[in-house]
């Protein structure tokens, strides 16, 4: 049994303009110690998926309408509020995008790292402080005993994200959800934070759900990749499968819009034309068809099911795995190069 199993998760928000299907039938499994990357454009439902797992969807206006989230055999969606609070921070921890605002400015960093320990492990102030210093040391903050007494505004961005990681890992959670943990950081710092996460994962065996739109991050870290578009999974499989034989035109689009020194020496980036659809008014058929260069009549009418293309590799495209699509892509790519 996998550590975390999510099946057919549907999260909706009721707004004045209609119901936003932010997450619409997402299923995946996360194994102990593995890393799952959730990739997609802004508004594709990545963060809402993560918040749904933590039961952090503000209700109202949000609601988890259907689906199952099972953590070690226990249904998260059926837990009492008290059990959910006991789970948050202890079994599943989360780090956020912007380290500049995710630490409380009025408390010392060490105190904040110790807070989860005081809540979940019943530690005294002293024990928690001592453990906070250990954690700061672990995430590579020099002079940790001294720095634990500093306030967040005395930390740089990279150090704050390290402190956030220390905070999240303080209780040794089974799962760490990282919601774009490097987006707000300088490129050099990004690399260090990723290395740190990889190192800590190896040491502690924490499973990671990495939400990102940076495919470089995915390549560095992920065992499995889930690509989301308009609240739906469009492709899901091992990182190798998704990178080396991507099946969905949207995944191709994401890969083509990355600068790649090894392949495209001409330096032309191929952006995906158009805008992601409004989640209130998702196009009929395949949500991606208005932007898809290979769209056929069937794409405008029927929504493709997520199906297994090769063992363990799923894609939601009518033409995934068929020759017609691959030929089309090669032709287009050649056209661009010419």
């Amino acid at each position: 049994m996998a550590l975390l199993e999510v099946s057919d998760l549907k999260t909706q928000f009721t707004t004045r303009d209609g119901v936003v299907r932010a997450v619409d039938g997402v299923s995946f499994a996360l194994e102990e110690g593995h890393t799952l990357a959730i990739v997609g454009e802004s508004g594709s439902g990545k963060s809402v998926t993560a918040l749904s797992i933590m039961r952090l969807i503000p209700d109202p206006p949000g609601k988890i309408a259907a689906g199952k989230v099972v953590l070690r055999g226990e249904s998260v969606l059926d837990m009492s509020d008290a059990d959910v609070r006991a789970m948050r921070g202890d079994r599943i921890a989360m780090i956020f995008q912007d380290p500049m605002t995710s630490l409380n400015p009025v408390f010392r960093v060490g105190f904040q790292i110790g807070e989860a320990l005081r809540i979940h492990k019943g530690m005294s102030r002293k024990e928690a402080d001592a453990r906070a210093v250990e954690m700061l040391d672990l995430v590579g903050i020099p002079n940790a005993p001294h720095r634990a007494k500093d306030y967040p505004h005395q930390f740089s961005g990279g150090m704050r994200q390290r402190a956030m990681i220390a905070m999240a890992l303080a209780c040794d959670p089974d799962i760490l959800i990282a919601d774009e943990p490097t987006t707000a950081l300088d490129v050099t710092i990004q690399a260090q934070i990723l290395e740190l996460m990889i190192e800590l994962q190896q040491r502690k065996g924490t499973a990671i759900i990495m939400i990102t739109h940076d495919l470089g991050v995915v390549a560095d870290m992920a065992d499995d990749v889930m690509v989301m578009y308009a609240g739906k999974q469009v492709e899901y499989g091992s990182a190798d499968a998704v990178f080396y034989s991507p099946q969905h035109p949207y995944t191709w689009g994401l890969l083509d819009s990355l600068p790649r020194h090894d392949i495209d020496e001409k330096g032309t980036l191929l952006p995906i034309e158009g805008q992601p659809p409004s989640l209130i008014d998702v196009p009929p058929g395949c949500a991606f068809h208005p932007r898809c260069p290979y769209a056929q009549a069937v794409c405008r009418e029927t929504c493709p099911e997520l199906r297994e293309i090769e063992p363990g590799h799923m894609a939601a495209c009518h033409f995934a795995g068929t020759d017609s699509l691959v030929r089309g892509r090669v032709a287009t790519a050649e056209g661009e190069v010419r």
Partner: peptide
């Protein structure tokens, strides 16, 4: 609306704790 309030909630803090502490 600050992210540290979300962070506290994600850490398992109760409403009272979030209110008074954060």
């Amino acid at each position: 609306e600050n992210e540290y309030v979300d962070a506290a909630r994600a850490m398992g803090a109760s409403d009272l704790r979030i209110m008074f502490r954060h």
